[in-house]
Write a protein that binds this DNA or RNA. Structure first.
Length: 776
DNA sequence: GACTCTGCATATCCC
DNA sequence: ATGCAGAGTC
């Protein structure tokens, strides 16, 4: 491949379509590209959407002609630029709303942008093609479904359904799900889709095992048979359409005069190709991104997309936004120092864009605690203190690395009586009862939905077990009709035993009746009828388990939510893509969420717990080859720090229970990477035991001591720098009986330096530091 | 067929 | 701790 000189060190992703090897098409003047509704209208420089922009932002907003790459650090007004730019384009009459395409990654970002543009230009903003990649692709794909072998009413599967389908496919291929875990294979398939690799392309690709490729193909065929597609397909299919139907492509290319892309650093290859194709005609594409906030490589994102932008769009204007209007200088300095440990950055410097009262700004605080419980207690106490000082709960956030960390905070907040909400927890529509209810609705709306049929045919129990379902399957297969059709036939024959046959007949009859009501009955009412007559609600009402009443409530909520949509079909479509559960929104409450979920948000006070090796950075990132995993974790830390406006508290525990196992933890290397002058460190002395074995020599490094106990403390006792003999301070020997505060009595099994393996009488076998046990 | 019990594996991040 | 698949029982 021909590459411009000097780019050899930049690794580009594989390029399935190799567009960039062709001469770039001559950039047609947008003016000449077609008739416009009316002439461009000059915009006064004091227009409301241009107010308060700094020079760089102004440039990013008003440079409407040609490709623009905006490198936008955290808190530099990225959303402001995007929304103002849209407003500017519309107000200048450069394009009609429906000729503008604005892409975000999350529904939340899309909603926010929609709202803010609306505030600037009014209801015309409704016409903008604004949404996530997936929702926009769905919209496009609806009109080209046949081209990829789908019916126009195809369904979009969530990850749960995906694995279900894949499991079925694997079972048919007689593959042992134990030897080949379905999730693993699913991940492989998704990576293919992220790179826009179809089964055909996968087959011709080198490497990888043939079994996976065959299963990929089978999976795609199965999806097609189900008239369904998964998230990855939304993009993949649209690309297929674009590349196989030049006329369709030209139509879409011609339509979108202006493209705006948010969080560009998170685009994967498929999304990138999609953008590049769509931007070919008018070439007015504006991508906003920050390589330091790229945290989605695990789902196929390629930071390289930023690097290659200028190549694929020659003459692109690059604007850097470096004035940060969010955080205090301490926070900025700390975040910048941390991220400076990464290599291969585009390198931005964040400058404080606000004037801060030097006396008033707090340093970042780090604090060592005994365990997760103590950590939760500390954080919640801190929250209470802030609250007493008059801070709103909604201005505080606890940002965790992984889902399992939320529990201890929730418990503590509950016992303290502080309102909180977990964002991104088990999502509303992912709940069992909602999925079941949705399956009923799906089956009524589209009779061919086999997955929905399977899900509800025996829920609640109708005496249609595995055997009956098998028979239906075989009949459907043989006659090449959907499951519901097959069931209808079987209900009229004697292939089934009388009892299941009757039950099945009743079921089919019900579904038919519900469908006949689709046009006449208001859909919310119809949904309620379905859930009632099917016996589904009664099933939960009769259930005596603790969460059953909650489920009944959720079902009511579902019906209520339906009111807001035009039809069942539009509701189903919406839910397939929008996964938010913001039903109980704006009470003043602390929010708990993952670092990933927090991207794009900001809070006055941010709590960053669990900064321990193997929690954050996460083990799995560390076990990856090379440093890319670690660097992504560091970017995640950077994202976390830069969410804060006023203050940050980083905590880490010496001991943590992970998946029901107690482990002694080391402070995260990121704690140490926070620069001294901007950090105030504290922690309980002695948390990390006495001298440590030589294998942990780093522990005696002054930096670690600082990380743990704060620079102001006197140097560690001499015994630290001169570790004693390995045979442990306590002088324990195997077989000794010992006592531990938490685990009670036990017997020492083995000694490894200062770590003891102890068989506790009650708590099982654990490894603990010898300083935590005493002889009895 | 439905239910219960047991053993087994599993456990980031999200559209 | 939790969720699941498979086995055994009513």
């Amino acid at each position: 491949m021909r590459r411009p000189a000097g780019s050899a060190n930049i690794r580009l992703m594989s390029d399935p379509f190799a567009l960039d090897d062709e001469a770039p098409p001559a950039p047609p003047s947008p003016r000449a590209a077609g008739p416009r509704a009316s002439e461009p209208r000059p915009v006064p420089p004091d227009a409301p959407w241009l107010k308060g922009l700094n020079p760089e932002q102004f440039q990013a907003v008003t440079a409407t002609d040609g490709p623009v790459l905006v490198l936008s650090g955290a808190g530099t007004g990225k959303t402001k630029v995007l929304t103002s730019r849209l407003a500017h384009i519309l107000a200048s009459n450069l394009a009609q709303p429906w000729q503008c395409l604005a892409v975000t990654f999350t529904n939340r970002a899309a909603r926010e942008m929609k709202e803010r543009v609306g505030q600037l230009v009014g209801p015309v903003s409704d016409g903008i093609w604004l949404g996530t990649f997936h929702s926009l692709c769905l919209r496009i794909l609806r009109s080209h479904a046949e081209a990829v072998g789908l019916g126009g009413d195809f369904t979009v599967l969530d990850s749960d359904d995906q694995t279900r389908v894949l499991k079925q496919v694997m079972a048919e291929a007689h593959i042992d799900p134990k030897a080949t875990p379905p999730q693993g294979l699913m991940a492989v398939i998704q990576r293919w889709k992220d790179r826009a690799v179809t089964p055909d392309k996968a087959a011709s690709e080198g490497g990888a095992d043939g079994q996976a490729k065959a299963l990929y193909r089978a999976y795609q065929e199965r999806l097609r048979a189900l008239n369904a597609c998964d998230f990855g397909d939304l993009l993949l299919h649209v690309l297929t359409v674009f590349l196989s139907d030049p006329q369709a492509l030209a139509r879409w290319q011609g339509r979108f005069r202006y493209l705006l892309v948010d969080e560009y650093q998170d685009t994967n290859v498929a999304q990138y190709l999609w953008l590049r194709l769509l931007a070919q005609t008018h070439r007015n594409i504006c991508c906003v991104g920050d390589d330091d906030q790229s945290i989605y490589s695990w789902r196929g994102a390629e930071v390289g997309n930023i690097l290659r932008f200028e190549k694929d769009f020659p003459g692109a204007r690059v604007v850097r936004l470096e004035s940060n209007y969010r955080s205090t200088p301490h926070i900025l300095a700390a975040a910048s120092a941390l991220i400076a440990n990464n290599e291969g950055r585009l390198g931005k410097t964040l400058r404080p864009g606000l004037v801060h009262d030097a006396e008033a700004v707090e340093k970042i605080r780090t604090m060592a605690v005994w365990d997760g419980e103590a950590e939760a207690r500390l954080v919640v106490e801190e929250i209470e203190t802030l609250q007493r000082r008059g801070e709103r709960l909604a201005s505080m956030a606890i940002l965790v690395r992984a889902g399992f960390q939320t529990r201890e905070f929730e418990e503590r907040l509950i016992t303290t009586g502080i309102p909180y909400r977990v964002v991104g927890g088990p999502r509303f529509y992912e709940r069992l009862e909602i999925r079941d209810a949705m399956a009923y609705l799906r089956l009524v709306v589209s009779a061919a939905d086999g997955l929905a049929f399977e899900r509800v045919v025996n829920t609640p129990k109708r005496g249609l077990g595995e055997a009956a379902v098998q028979t239906i399957h075989m009949a459907a297969r043989a006659e090449r009709v959907p499951l519901l059709e097959a069931a209808r036939r079987l209900a009229g024959t004697d292939e089934l035993k009388p009892k299941p046959r009757q039950a099945l007949a009743k079921f089919v009859e019900d579904v038919d009746r519900w469908r006949s009501l689709l046009d006449s009955m208001p859909h919310a009412e119809l949904a309620a009828t379905i859930l009632d007559e099917s016996g589904y609600v009664d099933m939960w009402k009769a259930d005596k388990s603790a969460d059953a009443p909650g489920r009944v409530e959720n079902l009511k909520e579902l019906v209520a939510a339906l009111e807001e949509y035009e039809s069942l079909a539009s509701f189903l479509e919406h839910v397939a893509l929008v996964m938010e559960n913001d039903s109980c929104a704006e009470q003043d409450s602390v929010v708990i969420m993952t670092l990933h979920g927090a991207k794009g948000l900001e809070f006055d006070s941010v709590f960053l717990p669990g900064w321990e090796e193997e929690v954050f950075p996460h083990v799995r990132a560390l076990s990856e080859s090379g440093t890319s995993g670690l660097e992504e974790e560091r970017r995640l830390a950077y994202v976390g720090l830069t969410r804060a406006r006023k203050r940050v508290l980083v905590t880490f525990a010496a001991n943590r229970r992970i998946y029901n196992q107690w482990k002694s933890q080391l402070p995260s290397r990121f704690v140490e990477e926070l620069p001294e002058p901007h950090v105030e460190r504290s922690g309980e002395r002695g948390l990390y035991g006495g001298g440590l074995g030589e294998s942990k020599a780093a522990w005696n490094d002054p930096a670690w001591s600082r990380a743990r106990f704060g620079q102001n403390r006197p140097a560690a006792p001499t015994s630290w720098s001169q570790p004693k003999a390995r045979e442990s301070e306590g002088g324990f020997t195997a077989g000794a009986r010992v006592f531990h505060d938490k685990f009670g009595n036990g017997t020492v099994l083995a000694i490894d330096g200062n770590k003891l393996e102890i068989a506790f009488d009650k708590a099982g076998t654990k490894k603990v530091l010898d300083s935590f046990v005493s002889a009895i």
